[in-house]
Amino acid sequence: MDWILHLDTDELIHPAGAGEYSLRQLLRDIPGDVDMVVFPNYESSVERDDIKDPFIEVSMFKRNYDHLPKDTYFGMYKESTRGNPNYFLTYGNGKSVARVQDHLRPNGAHRWHNYMKTPKEIKLEEAAVLHYTYAKFSDLTSRRDRCGCKPTKDDVKRCFMLEFDRSAFIVASTATEEEKLNWYREHVVWTDKTINLKLLRKGILTRIYAPSVIIEGLKESGVFSSVIAKAPATLSQDKFLASIESSNSSRASGTHSQPPRKIIRNTDHQSHATVRKALEATELHEAAVPPLSPPGPTMETHDNNLIVQSR
C-alpha cells in the first residue's frame, strides 16, 4: 500500500488529467519527494428534489475556489451562493492523499501529518473530490437523526461546525414535511436553468459524466452485487493485515512511487525512543484541520470604489 486517503460515503475521486481516468496513474506520476497531495473538492449541484442515486443521477458540480480565476469566483459570488451562508453548502478545503510512511497520522478528515517532520504537500490543478452533499432530500432527516442536539442556534454548534449544516438541522427538526421540501428546493436544488447556464458558461458550474457512466456500468454488469455477496461478514485484524501484506508483495514493480511498505505490529522488543520523541512532538502540533468553508467576500470601500476581497 503506497497511498492512503480519507473518503466519505458521499464522495468520489475525480482523477481528471490522468491517463485512462486512473487514480493509480495520477499518484504514480507524483514526484517522489512529495508526501501529500490535496484534491480540491467540487460540490454536487442537484437539479431535482427526487434524486435516489446521486452517483448516477447527478452530473452538475460547483467548482472549487482553487480551480477558478479569482475575478470569476468573487464576481459571481452572489449568483453562486443563492442566499446560502457560503459558496459551498458544506466544506471547501478538499481532501488530502498521503504517501504511506513512518510516523504518518491523520490530522482530521481533511489532512494528514507526520510526527517527525513537516510533510511536503502539493495541490492538484485538475483532479478533485466530488462531494455529493445533501444530494437527496432524505439527507436532511438522516443527518438530524444522527445528532442529539436541541434545534437551537446555540446548541447545534455542539454538533455542527458549518453554518449550513446547522440551519439544515434546525429546519429538519422543526418544520413540517412540506416546509422542509420547500426549504430544500430553495437552498439546495438548482431549478433556475437561466442561472445554471450562466454559471456553466462562466466555469463556476461544470458537467462531469464519467463517474455516472462508470458506476452505472458496474451496476448493470453485476459487479457490485457480486462483491457484496462474496464479502465476508467479518474480517479479523489478523486477516486484514495479512491481506494488506499479500497485496503489497504482489504489486508490480517498476513504478515511480516509493516501494510498498510492509505493515508490522509493535512488539515488546522495539525501542520506545521513537515513540517518546513522537509523543513529545505532538505537543507542538496544531489542532486537527476541521471542515472549512471556501473564501467569502468582504465589502470595503476605497476611494469611493467598491472592492471585493477574500476573507
Rank of each mutant, 00 (worst) to 15 (best):
Q101A: 15
L235S: 02
E177T: 11
H302S: 13
L130R: 11
T298Q: 11
F88R: 06
A242E: 15
R146C: 04
R201A: 13
V289G: 02
D71M: 06
T301Q: 10
D192G: 05
S44Q: 04
V275W: 11
L279T: 07
A231Y: 05
F224H: 08
K239W: 03
A287K: 15
S246F: 00
D165L: 06
L200H: 11
F164V: 10
F88P: 06
V189L: 06
I215E: 04
K277V: 02
L218E: 05
P295Y: 08
R146L: 11
V171L: 04
T72Q: 07
L7P: 06
V171Q: 15
Q309N: 13
A273I: 11
R24L: 12
N304C: 11
R185T: 03
V38C: 09
G19C: 07
G83Q: 08
R105N: 03
M116C: 10
V100C: 02
W183Y: 11
S253L: 08
Y134A: 03
A210T: 14
T194F: 05
T298N: 10
D238N: 05
L140S: 05
E283V: 07
D102M: 03
D50V: 05
F160W: 10
S142P: 01
V275A: 13
P151C: 06
S253H: 04
F160I: 02
W183Q: 09
L284A: 11
E300P: 01
D303I: 03
L279W: 10
H6P: 01
L200A: 12
A252K: 12
T301G: 02
E11Y: 07
A210F: 09
P151Q: 09
Y73D: 04
K62D: 03
Y115F: 13
D145L: 10
P31M: 10
H256L: 14
F137K: 10
P69T: 11
P85K: 07
A288V: 12
T206P: 01
P119W: 08
E163N: 09
G94T: 03
M161Q: 14
H67C: 09
S246M: 03
I228R: 09
S225G: 04
W190L: 14
N248M: 00
V100R: 00
I204L: 06
P290H: 04
S249P: 00
K123P: 00
K193L: 11
V275P: 00
A16D: 08
I307F: 14
E47G: 05
I208R: 03
A210Y: 09
T90E: 14
R105Y: 15
E283K: 13
A233V: 14
S236L: 01
D238L: 01
F224Y: 13
E57G: 06
L89D: 01
A242T: 05
L241H: 00
T255L: 11
E216Q: 14
V289R: 09
T274E: 12
E245A: 00
K219M: 12
D102C: 02
S250V: 02
